[in-house]
Design a protein around this nucleic acid. Structure first.
Lengths: 252, 252
DNA sequence: GACCTCGGTTGCGTATGTTGCAACGACTGT
DNA sequence: ACAGTCGTTGCAACATACGCAACCGAGGTC
């Protein structure tokens, strides 16, 4: 809708990847370098971009200022923090907190595991719904009409041999998840990692977010992974309580 | 330079403050609400903004995705982390890591203190050079010509009774800091808090950033604050080593 | 030291994209 | 049913952001 803004935002992503020369950036978004220069200058004025020397552009402080402000305003993040940090500390595994946004999963918090295998995740990063434990938990919590709608509308890229590839299979999986109260990602997203996830609920019992633990397969087999579920659920329950949820029925 | 981009970036700040209605945002940046709508839509496409229901706009996930990417790319942040985290753990006080950017100080990391008095700081937030310990450390590390230049060009808003208010006084203070190797903010920024700061150096001995500890005055008097300096300097020294610095002379 | 390349910068005229307007639609509360 | 918000769209006018081409400055090469 707004061309220059659109270009500028694309620019930001390009810069985030890695600092480049003007012409490179120009090529990337398909405009003249003078245009890039002018956009950069505006971004710079607002501290969204910094230049260091020549040939080096980095994201600026406004970026993380706003980001931190935004993160702080996500209530469930703060209320879930103690429980998830404790879970992370006691198990040593990577813990994620994620929520649904526009047909995808967004990670809103992350506690790095001790056995830090390089995982392709990061706060703010987005992931597909069909191959992540958190994705399954979040969609499974929706009314069945909405589940259908989503299951039919998303793509099913095959990321590992275990990835679910059809709406039918996904819907069946969601049903299982809804029943069980937790979800598993049996190496459906990344080959060497499997996860379990469970919902964090708010005052009205609605699902605010999903928390997951990710474990390298070399460290724990499938049995071992499932054995973590009780601990995970204890943590999500505690997080839910801190978010206003009460055991039986509505809060307030 | 780019009007629409400029407006959009201003919009982001407004949204960060607090989610509002279209007209409010329009007023704030002085344009018609339809204009705001179109900008928001573009921002939304890029996930810089989310809408929840009506009358609610929040910053979106692209924001913190990029921000985290950017933070990860700040080398000194990662290399200083262990030392600063340990300092924070052992003293219980709030620890900041900050660097110089465009006439101001920018906080690039923060470790919350245990006795958490609400402090007006946040990763990515900017603060003045003249009334912060980190600011003094960073400017004191510059060659004297540049010190002069900066001292003459910045403003000296009076924030507390102790705030330095003239370039002359500031330059004298910088000289003291350069000699001593650390800086003090004796409640010059916020009335109830005082800080000490010391530099973190890189391979060539250049100052990469400044680390500080902030302590409420009710917790520790001026004497007590100064007593923390050795521990702080031990931590910044360790951080420097991790950043490539070597005790005597040039690295490489 | 002259020449070349590469990255960044500026002025200018034009076409394009962006804007404000005003009318409409959806929703809320009275 | 009506008034009051808030968000959305089509359109025409204009400002603005664009591409171009020339220029500058730094580094490297011969």
């Amino acid at each position: 809708m707004s061309q220059s803004l659109d270009r500028a935002l694309t620019l930001l992503s390009s810069i985030a990847k890695d600092a480049r020369t003007l012409d490179d950036l120009a090529d990337e978004i398909g405009v003249h370098k003078s245009t890039v220069l002018r956009l950069l200058r505006t971004l710079e004025q607002h501290h969204f971009v910094r230049r260091e020397g020549v040939r080096h552009y980095r994201l600026g402080s406004a970026m993380f200022d706003l980001a931190n402000q935004a993160l702080d305003s996500i209530d469930v993040r703060r209320s879930a923090q103690p429980a998830l940090a404790a879970l992370n500390a006691s198990t040593g595994h990577t813990v994620h907190l994620a929520s649904y946004d526009d047909g995808e999963v967004v990670y809103i918090d992350k506690y790095e595991g001790r056995h830090s295998v390089r995982m392709y995740s990061r706060i703010g990063k987005r992931a597909p719904l069909h191959c992540t434990a958190v994705g399954k938990v979040l969609v499974a919590a929706m009314p069945s009409a909405r589940r259908e709608e989503i299951a039919r509308s998303i793509e099913y890229p095959v990321l590992t041999p275990n990835t679910i590839t059809t709406p039918e299979a996904y819907l069946a999986e969601l049903e299982r998840v809804a029943q069980a109260g937790y979800a598993v990602d049996n190496a459906e997203h990344e080959d060497f990692i499997h996860c379990v996830a469970a919902p964090v609920r708010g005052a009205d019992g609605e699902v605010l977010a999903a928390a997951s633990m990710s474990v390298p397969k070399v460290l724990l087999d499938y049995e071992g992974l499932l054995a973590l579920v009780p601990e995970l659920r204890a943590a999500t329950k505690e997080a839910s309580v801190h978010s206003g949820w009460t055991e039986n029925g509505k809060g307030h």
